[in-house]
Write a protein that binds this DNA or RNA. Structure first.
Lengths: 211, 211
DNA sequence: CTGTAATGTAAATGAGCATTCACATTACAG
DNA sequence: CTGTAATGTGAATGCTCATTTACATTACAG
């Protein structure tokens, strides 16, 4: 009865539907029925385009990897100072999470890490690449005198930890605070931590009570 | 047939068994059968001591809250400089995670955050208290001139992010690196970031390839 | 001793979910 | 047009898992 679509299109629709479902109900709540409903098709039709749920998760991993890590790598390879690049990467990542809550839910999901070992390894590799990208930018910034002398790798991990922990609190509190704003405060403080010239401490920033 | 035990003992055994199961199989792999097997009893007997799985998760949340946040609060209230306290809290937290992989798995689990709203709120509250505790220590350190002028709250979040992200990478890679050692490197770098007097940069530290 | 409340178990029960099956319908090559 | 490969669907199928039920056994108060 319904019109047909070629599998290339259907795969994209399914992956995007899955990302949305994860954003709302978590990877735990990601069922074939949910995906199918969101994508506007029957459960069985999912299997015309994917071998199974695992393959959907794999495709989603690739998509997210490109959206987050790929984008960061592009920015890192482009023009600008190290501080500028890092800021763009950091804030863009936060904005991407704010627009797609399913993104951190997927990346940090137990089902992913403890499920299919191949997928877990792929994700771990992407994460390692991300750390590497940031480390290189930071190392360049240290060379140029933009940053104080730091360990690039540890500093990169610190930066990613800020994002992840904030995404987590945002997720737990079900969006009780403004993620972009919070990311801005964290970035300002990070700059004060890392930059060569010490600057005066601005007014206290706590726009969200607690948590 | 088997000897009996009073419910007070049984509840502890069940909670500890649950923590172990989560450490090995994640919250996703936490089934009543797994808990019962680990605790050496039948599935049905679990229900003599807990109303259901949710109540076990609640008890586990209380236990973990006491083990991590409670301990940190005790250290914060004790003797020593701000730097000393923070270091002890940070490294003790890492050591606790290394000994109990189920701990971060539980805290960061989707099932917890998206499951029972009451439990989610409890966990969020404990996390907010933890941030508050660290913020106060950092603020005191700033006052005493131990730390540069920073935003205490954002710095506390940065510190917790370091722990969480490291725990995550450790979890994904299934313990591929030494968690305590990694925590040590991160702490050293954090000190360099925050302390008043700038110190020389030690040799590069990357004991684990990548990820 | 004795009875009874607490503790323990094996075997249902019932719900949710991934996957498969048997059978349409569409679109397009020829 | 026509046949056929790709898409599409509702209805099984079979598995896992939380929870309940019906029936022992233990420990202890009296």
């Amino acid at each position: 009865m319904p019109p047909k679509k070629i599998t290339h299109i259907r795969r994209e629709e399914i992956v995007q539907a899955a990302l949305q479902v994860i954003g709302e109900k978590g990877v735990h709540g990601l069922t074939i029925t949910e995906i199918a409903g969101r994508a506007g098709m029957s459960d069985a039709n999912i299997y015309r385009h994917f071998k199974g749920k695992q393959e959907i998760l794999g495709a989603l991993g690739d998509f997210i990897g490109e959206a987050v890590m790929g984008k960061a790598a592009g920015i890192a390879a482009g023009q600008g100072t190290a501080v500028e690049k890092l800021k763009i990467i950091f804030l863009a990542h936060a904005a991407l999470i704010a627009a797609n809550p399913g993104l951190p839910r997927f990346m940090f999901s137990e089902e992913i890490h403890l499920g299919d070992p191949h997928l877990a390894k792929t994700i771990a590799g992407k994460m390692a690449g991300y750390i590497e990208t940031l480390s290189n930018v930071i190392a360049a910034g240290i060379n140029d005198g933009e940053f104080r002398p730091l360990s690039p790798r540890e500093t990169a991990i610190t930066l990613l930890g800020m994002i992840q922990f904030t995404a987590l609190r945002w997720s737990i509190t079900r969006g009780a605070f403004n993620l972009d704003g919070e990311a801005g405060h964290l970035w300002d403080n990070f700059l004060r931590l890392t930059q060569t010239s010490s600057s005066p401490m601005p007014a206290e920033t706590n726009p969200m009570g607690s948590v």
